[in-house]
Design a protein around this nucleic acid. Structure first.
Lengths: 209, 209
DNA sequence: GTCTATAGATCGATAGAC
DNA sequence: GTCTATCGATCTATAGAC
């Protein structure tokens, strides 16, 4: 793997970048098994031998692509700083961001591919989980722990409560989307109503009395 | 497909049954793509030509297997009759059953396979959803609608509330299991605590005041 | 580094004998 | 119905020329 980390901007290895871009598209569209190196070569405009001069194997190329996509999710999630907003505002904000993120094409396709290959590439499952679901749950858990200490909310197990809140917001939407059920995606207005209902029920449920 | 529906008991076609059993094991273990008809034939103790005399194609065999497994989930779910139990009991019961079902090997492997092939076999996604997640959500939604009419709970959108309750119970457990995260499965005592916490928060949240 | 050409293996599906 | 044997297509990976 020459040139481990290139400069900030930099198109220093045009063919290598072309391979990465083509492989990303094909792996994300088709998954590991059905994707063929011939097709990657054709889309990248290089020969198959060139691919194998940059990457050891199909598995290595796949791993590089998917790991990159997983870590690319991290900034999307870390942007959600809850600070010391009132609980209703904080939950509404992060709930809405969470729902929008989970319904967007990129993370959805990435989750699909990682799931399909979690057996063959166990470390990818952990990388995905820690770059996505775990990170967002930790962000909310930190907020809930603070509100618990402040005496505002009754959340003695903040990480569990955080997961339960996100589970509430999501309901079965993600399952329907993953299964390809038609009309599975609620429009923005309905999404707002779902988040509002979840926030209301959750806050009622964990309010200090 | 000879002998559309056999008699009640009946091992009338031993080779056909051997094929179905072997194919079920291999498809559930490996998924559609990686599974090979040679391996099915070997495990079933027949030749490949015999398989093709009973089933038109690999796709047809796969569809028969998966559809059968999906509809086999139905009795497991319809057993959950909530009747007119008090809300805390009803939610505790169905929440615990739901969590145990989602964590068991059979449905977990089936969900994994259906997800992987939802692109190739769109109708399987719908069959799975309607035999499993939708059925269990409807069962709880019916109960919540009744309690709403009785003035016990404030659940004007019972189907949404049902999905939100199940999402709460599950948290990120299913995601971790599907991704192969080690130590993803809570033991029975922790499972009981998680359900208890979800029931408490949810009922507090939707209680009529 | 990059190409063309191909080795070597696997797989779905079928032909033809019994 | 069931078998053996095989076709034809596809795939990963590499050898060898430039």
């Amino acid at each position: 793997m020459p040139r481990g980390a290139a400069g900030a901007d930099a198109p220093p290895l045009p063919k290598r970048d072309a391979i990465l871009e083509a492989a990303a598209k094909i792996f994300m569209d088709q998954g590991f098994g059905p994707a063929s190196m011939d097709e990657v070569a054709r889309l990248a405009g290089v020969s198959k031998a060139t691919i194998y001069s940059h990457f050891d194997s199909k598995q290595a190329l796949f791993g590089a692509i998917i790991t990159g996509r997983c870590t690319a999710m991290i900034p999307l999630i870390e942007a959600a700083a809850l600070g010391d907003q009132p609980p209703a505002d904080a939950l509404r904000t992060i709930g809405r961001q969470f729902l929008d993120l989970l319904m967007s094409q990129g993370p959805l396709a990435l989750y699909r591919v990682v799931l399909s290959e979690a057996g063959r590439f166990p470390e990818l499952g952990r990388t995905f989980y820690e770059s996505g679901p775990s990170l967002v749950a930790n962000a909310l858990a930190d907020y809930l722990a603070r509100q618990h200490e402040l005496g505002v909310l009754e959340t003695p197990r903040p990480r569990v409560s955080a997961e339960q809140f996100f589970g509430m917001v999501l309901g079965q939407i993600h399952v329907r989307l993953m299964l390809g059920i038609s009309d599975a995606a609620p429009d923005p207005a309905e999404r707002a109503r779902l988040v509002e209902l979840a926030v209301g029920t959750f806050l009622n449920g964990v309010a200090r009395r």
